[in-house]
Structure formats: C-alpha cells, structure tokens
C-alpha cells in the first residue's frame, strides 16, 4: 500500500513540528492511523487577554491536501471575533486558493500549497492577539471587542481561567 501525497506531506510536517516545535505550539495527528485528523494546542499570546491560556483545536485535512486547506476548530470556549460560536476558525489562510469573491483578501493571504500547518497555527496565534475586524465570524464578540474592549478582555480572561480549571 502506497501512502498518498497528502499523507506523506502531513507525516513530513508532523516530523518537522516535532523536531522544531514553534514556541507555544504542540500539534500532531490524534492517531497515526488517520493522518488527516490532527489535534493541536496553542498557547495564548502574551500581552493579550488570552495570555496564560492553552487552547485545544482540531485540524481536519481534505484528501487533496496540500492543494486545499484544512479546517480548524477550537474544542474549547474561544470568544473571539474571528471564531464562530461553534469554534470554527475563520482566517484568510484557511480559505481555498484563488481570489476572494468579495475582494476582502488578496490571493497571497489565502491558502496555497506553499503554506503549512505551522504557518496556520502561527497565524491563528497572531489572530488571537489581533482580531480582524473586517469579517467577523462571531458578531457578538466583534461588537464587544470594538465597543467595550475592557468587558471583552475580562470575559476572555475568565474563560481562560475556567479552561484551566481555576
């Protein structure tokens, strides 16, 4: 049985993420029986209300990865303008290649096979630090972030502590 392109590529990415893990990121397949389904942990960036938190998320890769991007979903509570209430992450790097039909994003910001899991996770980390106000996925969070920042930060901090059992 030969393993296909997606599997080979994912194994290779898993390997490099294990050998040189980026600061604050742990990622890998839940089981090597299914390389298309990963779970990762992302640390909340310092200097943000997410600081000190650890956020689990699942990555689901399509069969034609790396041509098409994976989808990413937080498994815990992440109250953020670019994260749907279901946990689904909405950032440009996770959008299929090509031009945005709504002209919000440049093609270079979207997914392409030269991107990687590591880049996705780093992008999500910086998204936690700097929400993109232009295309909110969680309208309530976006509104609160824009209009009542301190309330937003307090809410995030509380949920971070709750997620650590404190």
């Amino acid at each position: 049985m030969s393993i296909n392109v997606a599997q080979r590529r994912l194994l290779q990415e898993y390997r490099s993420l294990t050998n040189n893990p980026p600061e604050g990121i742990t990622a890998g397949p839940i089981s090597e029986d299914d390389l298309l389904h990963w779970e990762c942990l992302i640390q909340g960036p310092e200097g943000t209300p997410f600081e000190g938190g650890v956020f689990p998320a699942e990555l689901k890769f399509p069969n034609d990865y790396p041509h098409m991007p994976p989808s990413m979903k937080f498994l815990g509570d992440v109250f953020h303008p670019n994260v749907y209430p279901s946990g689904l992450v909405c950032i440009s790097i996770l959008h299929p290649p090509g031009d945005d039909p709504n002209h919000y994003e440049k093609a270079s910001e979207r997914w392409s096979p030269i991107q990687s899991v590591e880049k996705i996770l780093l992008s999500v980390m910086s998204m936690l630090a700097e929400p993109n106000d232009e295309s909110p996925a969680n309208v309530e969070a976006a509104k609160m972030w824009r209009e009542r920042r301190s309330e937003y930060e307090a809410r995030v901090k509380t949920s971070v502590r709750a997620s650590l059992g404190l």
Partner: peptide
C-alpha cells in the same frame, strides 16, 4: 504544556 500553564496561572 497544559500542566505548566495551569501552574503559572
């Protein structure tokens, strides 16, 4: 990673 985060918090 989780235990460390919890300790720090």
């Amino acid at each position: 990673m989780i235990i460390e985060a919890r300790r720090k918090m």
